[in-house]
Design a binder for these strands. Structure first.
Lengths: 347, 347
DNA sequence: TTGAAAGCGCTAACAG
DNA sequence: CTGTTAGCGCTTTCAA
């Protein structure tokens, strides 16, 4: 352990001013306080000379604000969340905030973290998980004064602002596209629904599109799997093992599962898109480089992160209690895994 | 803003004891302090009743320790780093520490973050970047009392402990494997070397293996590209455009670039591994699900993270200045992208 | 076995 | 325009 820490007192002594002046100069407090240019220069020079760095912890304690937001990431291995986090971080940085990412795959941990979140370390939370138990804990935290935003939450009207995309619409978009391409036996890979409080919106969209297309729903065509690449691989194998006639197209819960499906299909010698079309959900960057390239319903991931941060920021600054619920558009990204046929997208 | 925060004073009042007692009970201070079981019970009950959560910021200020480590991640989009971070986090959690991940793709930002880092926010750093400028700043931070560990740093003997793998050996391992498989025209996709202070170790290994195999080095067979999937795609196309005879195998800088290469090859109608073999580096999980599955030199990513954390932890607790330099083993993961032939691996 | 008091480094009234 | 003062909520001697 080296030399004692340099504090604002040291800088004050070095510059021949009071410690208050140092604080005022360095934190650029707006207020009515005025410091002469000469003094400011001296302080800045002294701080520079001493290599002074303000103690962030002391600042936080005094200000009762840490300028840090916690992002609870329920699936750190999913590039989609990495993209959302990146968007939030970019936006936070501009506002002088930091985003602390807590990788929290399971529910107990999430509840735990939330319950500790009033420890002054964080001014707010962005919650990626949609679990009801977790949401309940979030409402507690809210009551204790935390600023919070949930992602994709669909529960009953809550006090929690939400950033979402219309996944039911997305499921419909994907399935309708497949129907448009001429498919009538369309399989669906669904997640195991760890957060199954609300039965899959994507699946609801799939069902509605089938209905719109006058196609009878065959329960044999839906298989539930783990939300991961390996899970998609396994689910696809399961689907194929269900016997003939097999589906000519598959709508996967997300790109991760779609990539797994692509792998299973390749391993089994089933050609994509010739023998079977595959469509994913999320539109992660990786999808542009799979073999074949993945067609997907893309979410504006970075934008989701950005808006989420902006919402907590506004909450923190008492701005606009108006827009507490942001819905962002989805769009169809057509690549190779469904064969070729461009159609209009949108919403 | 709701009700005032609950402090240890509130708990003390509720329990009819002094605030000191509350602190002693709740922080389980070891020392010579003794609290009767009865008092302890009352304090615990009162805290529970009030929903008291200790203010972490105040604790940090007083203890001069935040139990937080910053991980500087130079490539957040690379799953390899996500795996390293996950390893560090798992290990940190057990020790009661948090890992704060700063996504810092560029050098200026890294320097910036490091320069602000004695702010009491962080007790230490794990540095993923290998840039010299960044390392210089790290040494400053060290002098300010920060515990630091660098990943893969190869510079002259520094005061900074390092966790590394022998990438030169890895490059040799990959290339020798290709030679073993009968290849003699072996291309190499190399990164653009943003951190080019030390010219590629992997490339050095490649060259040495060529030499060992009695193969003349053809500079035409090395192409430099951006360290990303798209970069690998572009580099592969560049390599193929250099005319005949084209290589029968390619060693990519890492799995990300290898995946890009796989994509380019597929797009160009070149079959892998029949027409050309591809080997990557890092051994990311995704490699098990590409088409074809990727053969790679695997790094023990989670282990790298774990050891890095353990090193800063030891530093923080004044333990063993002995092992300041950990080298972890690499191993060949044989999948499909080079065709089939098992050989022994190791080191 | 418990409590009083000092102070971590900083900000924000309020005086001057 | 600048300095004095009073804490933020907690840990930690030291004394009772």
């Amino acid at each position: 352990m080296p030399a004692r820490r340099i504090t604002s007192h040291d800088v004050a002594r070095e510059a021949g001013v009071s410690q208050t002046t140092v604080s005022v100069v360095l934190s650029e407090t707006p207020g009515p306080i005025q410091i002469s240019a000469a003094t400011r220069e001296r302080v800045l020079a002294a701080a520079e000379r001493l290599g002074y760095v303000p103690n962030h912890v002391a600042q936080s304690l005094r200000r009762r604000r840490s300028r840090t937001i916690t992002f609870i990431n329920p699936a750190p291995e999913n590039p989609y969340f990495a993209e959302v986090v990146a968007g939030a971080q970019a936006s936070a940085e501009q506002a002088g905030y930091s985003i602390f990412v807590a990788a929290v795959p399971d529910r107990e941990q999430a509840v735990n973290i939330l319950s500790q979140l009033n420890a002054g370390t964080s001014d707010g939370v962005i919650l990626g998980s949609r679990d009801e138990a977790v949401m309940a804990e979030l409402r507690h935290a809210l009551r204790r004064g935390l600023a919070a935003v949930a992602l994709q939450y669909m529960g009953e009207q809550s006090a929690v602002p939400v950033v979402r995309t219309d996944k039911e619409f997305g499921g419909h978009l994907a399935t309708a596209y497949l129907i448009d391409l001429g498919h009538r036996r369309i399989g669906h890979l669904k997640d195991a629904a760890a957060y199954a409080d609300h039965p899959g919106e994507r699946t609801a969209g799939y069902l509605r599109a089938l209905d719109d297309g006058g196609i009878d729903f065959d329960p044999n065509l839906i298989v539930q799997g783990k939300n991961s690449i390996a899970g998609g691989d396994a689910a696809m194998r399961e689907l194929l093992s269900r016997g003939r006639p097999r589906p000519t197209a598959v709508f996967a819960f997300n790109d991760l599962m779609a990539i797994g499906a692509l792998h299973a299909l390749d391993a089994l010698g089933v050609r994509v898109p010739d023998d079977i079309a595959v469509i994913g959900f999320d539109g992660i960057e990786l999808g542009a480089f799979t073999n074949p390239e993945l067609t997907s319903v893309a979410q504006p991931s970075a934008e989701v992160g950005r808006r989420a941060f902006e919402l907590v920021f506004d909450l923190l600054h008492g701005r606009s209690t108006e827009v507490r619920d942001v819905t962002l558009p989805l769009r169809l990204v057509i690549r190779d895994s469904c064969g070729w046929k461009a159609i209009s997208s949108g919403r």
